[in-house]
Structures are given as C-alpha cells and as structure tokens.
Design a protein around this nucleic acid. Structure first.
Length: 303
DNA sequence: TGATATGTTATCTT
DNA sequence: CAAGATAACATATC
C-alpha cells in the first residue's frame, strides 16, 4: 500500500520527470479529489518535490504547491520525455484506453483518471484513483504547515534517507517517549500518523514480527530493550521497502509505470496460515486491530 | 452475493 | 473533556 517507502519512491521519480518543467494546463474531472485552485498552477515551473509522511508536495516557482495524498488507490502516472525506452505501463494502472490492453505504453485519460497535469515539451502527469479517497489541494508553499491540516499534525518521521532527512526526524528518544506514554495497542500506535509519520499496515506488521513483539501488546508494556528493537525494526523494514521500490500488493505503481517488489518479501503481512520462516514452529495467525488486518507468529512474537 | 482490503476522518463511546 | 474505539468513505476483487 502507499506508505512511506511507496510515496518516497514516487517522490524520487517525480523529481526526475517534473523538476524544471512548467505546468501548462490542469484538467480536473473530479472535484471530490481536486476541489479548487488549479489555475494557480498554470504557468508555474516545478522547483522541487517534497514528502511529508504519505503526502507529496509539488512546489512551483510561483509560490504555490500542489499537495497530494493518494490514499489507498491513487496513482500518479507520468508519460512524456525522459522515460526509459521502451516505456512500461503495469497492468495495475487504471484508466487506460478502453479496449486496449493495459500494458500498452500510451496511457490516456480514462474512466478512473480524475486529474491531468499538462507539462511543457508534451509531458503529462495523470492522477488515477479507483476509489476516489485521495485528494489534491493547492496551498501557498509558505503556508504548507499552517494550512494543510494533515502536514501540520504529522508526527516525527523515521529517517530512511540520511541525505534527505525529514524536518521532524523520529529519534530513538522520541520513539521511547511516544511508546512509553500510552497504553494503546502497539500496532495501532505505530500506524497513528499523528504519533509517527509514514508507517501503515504493511510495515507495522513486518516491523513487529522483526522485533519479535506481539501486535496486541500495550505500548507501555514494552521493555526498554524491546523499544529499541522495535525502533530498529521500523527503520529496517522501511529501508527494505524503499530499496525494492515499494509494495505493489493492490494498485500501487510508480510514475514510470512500474511496480515495486516488496510484496514478494513481506515478513508477516498477508502470510496467514503460512509457516513462520524464522521459528518454523507455527503458522501465522490473522486478527483485526484498529479495524486493520494484523498478522503474527504466535510462537516467536512475545506477549 | 456479500465479505474484504486499505488510510484517514468523522462520529460515537468510554 | 479528552482519549480511544469504531464506522464511514467507494469500489474492485475474491
């Protein structure tokens, strides 16, 4: 799912394809996703791309930013100059040309394409979203943290790229403070964006397995040693996800039309009834916590 | 056919 | 009152 590593992967590609290019026109077909303000983007040149948790910001040289949350099923697809040759287009991409196989490399606006950004030199950036949970907001770049509720409330972020550290890095000290100050279920806490930015269901499941901690534990019950182990585990699974270009379990694809491969390396997520490949003594169980699928090994994850 | 999946938010409950 | 738990959102897929 689009969590920190997936959105970071998208960010890197948008940097490559968009920075230095001018947005000439924006076509909005779904006001539910893109409420207003697209005219403020037209004629602006892309300065830089930033990521805050699972949110992206495309900053223009005219003082405006397009802030994008793709939620569960949003896709940002780029077609135009500089793509690898031949360009690829995953079958997971929605909204292709009706009647043409989805693997055709010429993405075109379709049923699930709700926004199209037209760029200079013929480039296009499509926003597709089957479920329309995502959103795009136009905000003055200087007001990003003030006006965008989501970014303002975001908790500290795990550092996965030392060259590009987040504004509010999640240090071990901060992590211990967050975990030690509540009785909430540890896995639900990890996914709370106001506590820790960027971790979602897949990486929360995998980090808890890696740290050998039961997802149902009360956060407060973790020993100092377990706190440190979990902190390291979170960084490790996020880095692994990033290394593999994210997890294309559902509809996640990258702007160049490719899929990530972390889904082939899930540690615990989605492994219900499979034998645990660490202890080989039990099969993964599945329960629901905070309304989300939770997978764990009943033998090697400690209560 | 209906249960299920996900991230966030609105709303309800303790 | 505030923290926490749960329903709602929309729709393809199993």
């Amino acid at each position: 799912m689009p969590e920190l590593p997936e959105v970071e992967t998208i960010k890197k590609q948008l940097e490559k394809y968009l920075v230095g290019h001018k947005i000439t026109k924006v076509e909005v077909r779904a006001r539910k996703i893109f409420a207003e303000g697209e005219r403020n983007l037209e004629a602006g040149k892309v300065n830089k791309i930033r990521r805050f948790g699972k949110v992206l910001s495309i900053d223009l040289d005219n003082g405006y930013s397009a802030v994008i949350h793709i939620k569960l099923t949003g896709q940002l697809i780029y077609r135009g100059p500089n793509l690898p040759n031949p360009a690829s287009l995953s079958e997971k991409v929605v909204g292709g040309i009706p009647g043409l196989p989805a693997s055709a490399s010429q993405m075109q606006a379709g049923k699930h394409t709700h926004v199209t950004f037209f760029l200079d030199k013929g480039g296009k950036l499509y926003y597709n979203d089957v479920r329309k949970f995502g959103w795009i907001k136009i905000i003055k770049s200087s007001n990003l943290k003030v006006k965008s509720d989501f970014i303002a409330r975001l908790g500290p972020e795990p550092v996965v790229d030392k060259k590009n550290p987040p504004d509010n890095p999640l240090t071990l000290e901060k992590f211990k403070e967050i975990v030690g100050s509540t009785k909430r279920v540890i896995k639900v806490l990890l996914m709370d964006q106001e506590k820790i930015g960027g971790v979602g269901n897949i990486y929360a499941n995998d980090a808890l397995w890696l740290a050998r901690i039961m997802p149902t534990r009360s956060a407060k019950s973790l020993s100092p040693k377990e706190q440190s182990k979990l902190y390291d585990a979170i960084l490790n699974v996020l880095k692994e996800g990033l290394k593999r270009g994210g997890a294309s379990e559902l509809s996640y694809v990258t702007p160049d039309g490719n899929e990530g491969s972390y889904q082939e390396h899930f540690l615990a997520y989605g492994r219900k009834d499979e034998t645990c490949k660490r202890c080989h003594k039990a099969k993964f169980k599945k329960i629901t916590l905070g309304g989300r699928g939770t997978y764990f090994c009943p033998v090697c994850q400690k209560l």
